[in-house]
Design a protein around this nucleic acid. Structure first.
Length: 233
DNA sequence: GCGACAG
DNA sequence: ATCTTGTCGC
């Protein structure tokens, strides 16, 4: 049973229209429903790579708690929008949806490479994608877009709140001892506490959670691609 | 006007 | 994101 995808709007907008749309959509995000952490079966990872003006999206579904790949989908289109901080959705959203339309599995939650509500208008790409599908989403970024935070203790699992204008918009989480923390925030249909717990449970021996690593490797950047990986493209 | 700024 | 080799540290 594939996931549901709703055509909320067109993606080819001007920056001004995109910002207006974000103001309109942000209020629709659900940040109060806990993730079903005790009933997880499948967790999806989403990432996009850009090369020679072509954007490639990768959606990888892993079993939980085994974290083994059960499905891998990709899609590619000419990069439609420039990179503008705060408007990443309009650069990567369309190709991600293209990939999601091909998905056969039904993940319980998706972890997206980027911010959820830890965004100037509280609607980063993880939240935006979350509004298009009937599945919870969590944002996990490698760096900060907005907000401030206290230093994060060095122990794995430690975290400090990411605050913007007095509001807690996410958590800066240490996924590995003495390694740069990641920025976790609610995408849609999740709470910060359960989002942080999900990212921790999906992290094994690396800084980033497995779903994101798998998607990153599949989307392009053959960085830590395990040896022996033959048919990719 | 001057910095900050996911991927 | 992407351009790029070797190198330092746990």
């Amino acid at each position: 049973m594939p996931i549901t995808i709703r055509e909320l709007h067109r993606w080819d907008l001007t920056p001004a229209e995109a910002i207006a749309l974000q103001h309109e959509l942000a209020p629709q995000i659900d940040t109060a429903t806990p993730l079903p952490l005790d009933d997880l079966r499948l967790v999806g990872g989403i990432d996009v790579s850009v090369r020679d003006n072509i954007s490639r999206a990768a959606v990888v579904v892993l079993s939980y708690p085994a974290l083994e790949v059960v499905e891998r989908i990709t899609a590619a289109i000419p990069t439609p929008f420039p990179y503008i901080p705060g408007l990443l959705s309009f650069r990567e959203g369309a190709v991600i949806v293209d990939a999601l339309r091909q998905l056969r599995a039904t993940p319980d939650v998706f972890i997206v490479d980027g911010q959820g509500i830890a965004h100037p208008r509280r609607i980063g790409i993880a939240s935006h994608i979350g509004l298009w599908i009937d599945v919870p989403t969590v944002g996990c970024g490698k760096t900060r877009l907005t907000g401030t935070h206290e230093p994060v203790p060095p122990a794995k699992g430690a975290w400090t709140p990411l605050i913007d204008h007095g509001e807690i918009i996410g958590g800066v989480l240490r996924t590995r001892e003495a390694v740069h923390p990641v920025f976790v925030s609610v995408g849609n249909r999740a709470t910060l506490e359960t989002a942080l717990e999900l990212v921790l449970r999906c992290t094994t021996r690396y800084r980033l959670p497995e779903p994101i690593r798998a998607a990153h490797n599949t989307a392009g950047q053959s960085d830590a691609a395990p040896p022996g990986q033959l048919p990719l493209w």
